[in-house]
Design a binder for these strands. Structure first.
Lengths: 234, 234
DNA sequence: TGCATTTTCTTTGTCGACAACAATATGCAC
DNA sequence: GTGCATATTGTTGTCGACAAAGAAAATGCA
């Protein structure tokens, strides 16, 4: 219904079906192309992707495992709602993961890590310069993901990626409303974090990560608080 | 092959199939009934649970999402190996989650939380008294899960439960080798944590959680270090 | 007209079958 | 006997179909 990616009828590598569906749905959910709370029809997806319901279902099971969709037994599955009432738990966990991963990156980064991190930072700066909201969100995620990778703790990385993805939905709302204006300050903060990591200065990395997280959290919280007040005013 | 839970031929509630398979396999993996690295045959499971391969596969997808099994494309899926070389990352994350959840429990616990926590602690103490290793592992998990619940941050709770489950496999090895002897000290430490939570003493809760985690980590590390040395000696 | 009940209809959960892929076994040439 | 190409076997990924479970619509009755 959204996109008709029914391009190739049957020229699809065996075993790639689930991955395609999973990644497509995942991106659409996180980009808010699929609205939170909207129902998901299996047969519709099967038609759209030109495949049977079986791989569609397996993709949905994966998405459910990550909390991106919720599936009621014998009832339709739907895109998970954003829990605005408990956003503070999200921000709390996000801040902790920012700090922990950046700390560990300063401790454990090895050859090649800094190059990868700097490359993502360059892409992020370019996206900010071009004022492209979606690219900003994506490159920011990759930047912090690279830092987490350099920290070399897959448990932290896993939770952090999940939180960053969940945050993509919030950021999408945020940038949508602010008309894609550019937060140059984030670029500078990123640079400072890279410097601290390169110097293996754990405490500085922690401090920067914490203030970076606080910065983001504060802005988003202000935005949603303003939004809520407007809702009441109407 | 292990258990023939082929009891009821078809008297099974619609939609419960996946859950049954998922929980059974999960328990067997964590209890080491299914050895790490052992292959998983879908048709064999289908015969054992008296159902088609479809629900079996969905259960395996869920397990793969939690990292309990690994699935190679077009090749058989197998029980995830324990990554002994990177155990420190596991202990690191586990310790942090011990601390964070206990801190939050001291901050946020509400009516009924303490009762639930104390109930699990009583069961744990009973299991220790009875020197039942499996019951000790299970009740210990429930005790800390209840604390995490009282902390009211589902992101932390989710990661913590995953770590505790992964730890079940390590603890299983640990207790197996030590002939199920009883760590009375854990019971006492639990009691102290409950007291700190009840008093809403966040710093004390943090301190106790940290030392509790260190205690456990140290014992398991010693065990595996000893084990490794024995392996070399042989 | 309003409510309870039955019927239809939609959507899910499960099944058995088939095709593709990987690994092993077989055959053949040297 | 060895090395390579081919056939065979086993296992996975995908499919189309059917039946159960709700939900919605239709019917009946007061």
């Amino acid at each position: 219904m959204l996109k008709t990616d029914t391009a190739n009828p049957a020229e699809r590598k065996r075993g790639s079906g689930v991955r395609v569906v999973y990644e497509s749905l995942r991106d659409e959910i996180l980009d808010l192309t699929l609205a939170p709370g909207s129902p998901i029809d299996e047969v519709q997806l099967a038609e759209r992707f030109n495949m049977s319901r079986t791989p569609i279902r397996e993709a949905l099971v994966r998405l459910a495992g990550e909390g991106l969709v919720e599936t009621l037994p014998n009832r339709s599955t739907m895109v998970s709602n954003i829990d605005f009432l408990n956003l503070h738990t999200f921000f709390d966990a996000l801040t902790l993961m920012y700090r922990v991963t950046t700390r560990l990156a300063a401790q454990n980064h090895a050859a090649g890590d800094l190059e990868r991190i700097r490359a993502h930072q360059a892409q992020f700066a370019a996206a900010v310069e071009a004022q492209q909201a979606l690219a900003m969100i994506a490159t920011n995620r990759e930047f912090h993901a690279a830092i987490a990778e350099a920290g070399r703790n897959p448990y932290y990385t896993g939770l952090f990626l999940r939180l960053l993805d969940e945050g993509r939905r919030l950021l999408r709302l945020y940038y949508q409303s602010f008309d894609d204006r550019l937060p140059q300050e984030f670029v500078d903060e990123h640079e400072a974090m890279i410097t601290a990591i390169a110097a293996r200065d754990v405490e500085a990395a922690d401090r920067l990560a914490r203030s970076h997280a606080n910065q983001i959290v504060r802005q988003i919280q202000q935005f949603f608080a303003r939004d809520a007040r407007q809702d009441i005013a109407l």
